[in-house]
Computed example of a mutant assay.
Amino acid sequence: MKKAQLTKGEFGEFYSGYIDRLDDEAELIASLENNTSEMVEFLKSIPSEKWNFRYKPEKWSIKEMVQHIIDTERIFQYRALCFARNEQNPLPGFDHDLYVLNSGGDNRSASELIEEFKIVRQSGIFLYKSFTDLMLKIIGNMNDVNTSARAIGFIMIGHAKHHKDIISNRYL
């Protein structure tokens, strides 16, 4: 399934900023796999002295940002699973700032965070490989926004790219 196959009703406007980071011909599973490799290599290239850096005192450190990516991957994967299984109840949003504040991300090693990202994303890839075309098209409600399971996969990729760009432009 390619990004170009998504329709307007499959995701909210807020998520366009993530989905628009991918080419129309981007294929879901291949893009998840490629993005995983790109993110792992990028994270491994960050100098050790930069992992605790904040470009402003109130901003997240790189460790906290990677922990945020991991947490968000887990939440999006759960949402995709719920929708693929035809969950009818709306799923709540989450306060990403509160999650980061309570994550303990700064107390973790860079290598541990990189490995966890890789494992969580690999788990998501297996999840997406298990979905049929019909399951991928099922739309559910997350945080008051109708979204399909397949759109969530592209959102996950765009979300990681978004934070990679922030790290590159503001932290390195």
Score class of each variant (00 low, 15 high):
Leu172Arg: 07
Tyr128Asn: 01
Asp165Tyr: 04
Ser103Trp: 12
Leu22Arg: 02
Tyr78Ala: 12
Phe94Val: 14
Phe83His: 12
Asn102Ser: 09
Phe11Val: 05
Tyr78Trp: 13
Asn169Arg: 14
Glu49Asn: 15
Ser103Val: 12
Arg121Tyr: 02
Asp24Asn: 14
Leu28Asn: 00
Gly124Trp: 03
Phe117Gly: 01
Ile70Val: 14
Lys50Trp: 08
Glu33Pro: 05
Glu73Asn: 09
Cys82Glu: 06
Pro92His: 09
Met156Ile: 08
Val40Glu: 00
Lys118Ile: 10
Lys164Leu: 10
Ser103Phe: 12
Pro90Val: 07
Gln5Ser: 11
Ile75Lys: 03
Ile152Leu: 15
Glu38Ser: 10
Lys161Ile: 10
Pro57Ser: 12
Ser16Ile: 08
Leu91Lys: 13
Ala4Tyr: 03
Asp71Ile: 14
Met1Tyr: 06
His162Ala: 06
Ala84Leu: 01
Phe94Ser: 15
His163Asn: 05
Ser37Ile: 05
Leu32Tyr: 00
Lys118Val: 11
Lys44Cys: 12
Gln67Glu: 06
Leu91Gln: 15
Glu58Asn: 15
His96Gln: 13
Phe131Ser: 11
Leu98Phe: 11
Ile119Tyr: 14
Val120His: 08
Ala84Tyr: 00
His162Pro: 05
Tyr171Arg: 10
Lys164Asn: 09
Phe11Ser: 08
Tyr18Ala: 06
Arg21Trp: 00
Ile139Ser: 07
Asp133Thr: 13
Gln67Asn: 03
Leu134Glu: 15
Gly104Asp: 11
Glu58Pro: 09
Lys8His: 04
Ile19Val: 12
Pro90Phe: 07
Gly158Ser: 06
Ile69His: 09
Tyr99Gln: 03
Trp60Pro: 06
Asp95Ser: 04
Pro47Lys: 12
Asn102Phe: 05
Pro92Met: 14
Arg85Met: 12
Leu6Lys: 03
Ile138Val: 07
Arg121Ile: 04
Ser16Glu: 10
Asn52Gly: 11
Ala80Val: 06
Gln5Pro: 00
Arg108Lys: 11
Gly105Tyr: 13
Arg54Asn: 14
Gln67Asp: 02
Ser130Asp: 08
Tyr171Trp: 09
Ala84Gly: 09
Lys164Tyr: 07
Thr132Glu: 04
Gly124Glu: 03
Met142Gln: 11
Asn169Met: 08
Pro90Ala: 15
His68Pro: 05
Glu115Lys: 03
Lys56Ala: 11
Lys3Met: 03
Asp144Arg: 11
Phe126Tyr: 14
Thr147Lys: 00
Lys50Leu: 13
Lys8Asp: 07
Phe14Pro: 04
Asp106Ile: 03
Glu33Phe: 05
Asn107Arg: 08
Gly124Lys: 03
Phe42Leu: 09
Phe76Asp: 06
Tyr128Gly: 01
Asn34Val: 00
Val66Thr: 12
Met39Arg: 00
Tyr99Glu: 02
